[in-house]
């Protein structure tokens, strides 16, 4: 089969899945939040409110788009795209499943591409997401938006450090930057492949990573980019219509990618417990279940915990998370040294 065609199909499948997940998350967020508050949630549009994301999308398309007078128009219009793009780009290197064979065709591994430096790519592109937030806040020419953007950027930078350091420990264990290799190292065969998952070797790293992903995606309890009582909204106060929606699509895409990344790095990716040689679709289903749990966790935590105070956030980031992740890296290094190389 034509190699380019295979590529286009895989890209369309994964990218469509990502955007579809983002849309489904907007509904799931509202449904779960409702259930946790004794409410019912959206149930008017379609059965169970399943068509709600489509209705929202149509509404956003037809709404009037306002650009404030003093705004820097070029940057103002660019910022939402910058916020949504990095998450959509990083999904490219996530290894969803092994070799796909369908209708007698070999589609190769189920990921858009397997970069040699996949982990590095994810961190480099993921770090760009902050530009969307801070530029959006700055270009609005509103003090509240600017403050929201500044807070978000300060937070994301402080937590990115611990995020990178925990990933570094995993990379050191595997000895490879390729996410595919990291996944394969966690599933080398045998019945007890569950015990090969990095979560057992990096419990502290796993915990730090999960908390850092919350900060990295600007989710509760670290959603400092937005705050109604102090900032009249946040970095997106001045945005409306589809550009406003783009920020949210970006946020949900980032959540999805972070959930996938957590599964890849710590939970063996598509590795099926007790079934090392599972066919690709079982592995893919296992991946979706694991990633689904983390997506649920994002929502679950959001509707449980209140927002941190800003100084508490900084305290936690610099005085607790950074030393702990450094310690984690050191302990990993010492362990590797004594076990005789990775």
């Amino acid at each position: 089969m034509n190699e380019i065609l295979v590529w286009v199909i895989k890209t369309g499948f994964i990218f469509g899945g990502l955007v579809g997940t983002a849309a489904a998350m907007s509904l799931a967020e509202r449904k779960f939040s409702a259930w946790m508050q004794y409410r019912i949630g959206p149930n008017r549009v379609g059965p169970w409110g399943l068509l709600q994301p489509i209705a929202d999308g149509v509404k956003f398309m037809f709404k009037e788009e306002l650009i404030p007078d003093g705004a820097n128009k070029w940057v103002f219009q660019l910022a939402p795209l910058l916020a949504a793009m990095p998450a959509m780009m990083t999904i490219a290197v996530i290894p969803f499943a092994g070799r796909v064979e369908l209708f007698g065709q070999d589609f190769g591994n189920l990921s858009i591409t397997d970069l040699d430096i996949g982990a590095l790519y994810v961190l480099a592109i993921g770090g760009l997401a902050i530009y969307g937030v801070i530029l959006g806040g700055w270009a609005s020419n509103s003090k509240y938006s600017l403050l929201g953007g500044l807070r978000a950027s300060a937070q994301m930078i402080s937590y990115e450090l611990s995020l990178i350091l925990t990933i570094l420990a995993v990379i050191a264990m595997t000895g490879d930057l390729d996410l595919r290799a990291i996944v394969e190292a966690q599933n080398t065969g045998g019945v007890w492949n569950v015990l090969e998952w990095n979560i057992w070797y990096q419990p502290l790293g796993f915990m730090l990573f999960v908390v850092a992903t919350f900060a990295e995606t600007n989710r509760h309890p670290f959603d400092f980019a937005e705050c109604e009582p102090e900032l009249v909204g946040g970095f997106h106060t001045e945005y409306s219509a589809m550009r406003f929606a783009l920020f949210f699509i970006g946020e949900y895409c980032a959540m999805t990618v972070m959930a996938c990344l957590t599964v890849t790095l710590f939970l063996g990716g598509p590795s099926v417990p007790f079934w090392a040689a599972a066919p690709w679709f079982v592995g893919f289903a296992a991946f979706l279940v694991k990633a689904g749990f983390f997506l649920f966790l994002f929502i679950w935590v959001r509707w449980t915990l209140p927002r941190f105070r800003f100084d508490q956030l900084m305290h936690l980031g610099w005085k607790v998370f950074l030393p702990l992740s450094l310690l984690n890296l050191l302990a990993t290094g010492v362990a590797i040294l004594f076990r005789g190389g990775a």
Binding site: W35, Q37, Y38, R39, I40, T304
Partner: peptide, 17 residues
């Protein structure tokens, strides 16, 4: 806290349609 919110997901709804 998480266990509380999880349990409340299955509590009786108070919404009136």
């Amino acid at each position: 806290g998480l266990s509380i919110t999880f349990r409340k997901m299955f509590a009786k709804r108070v919404t009136r349609q």
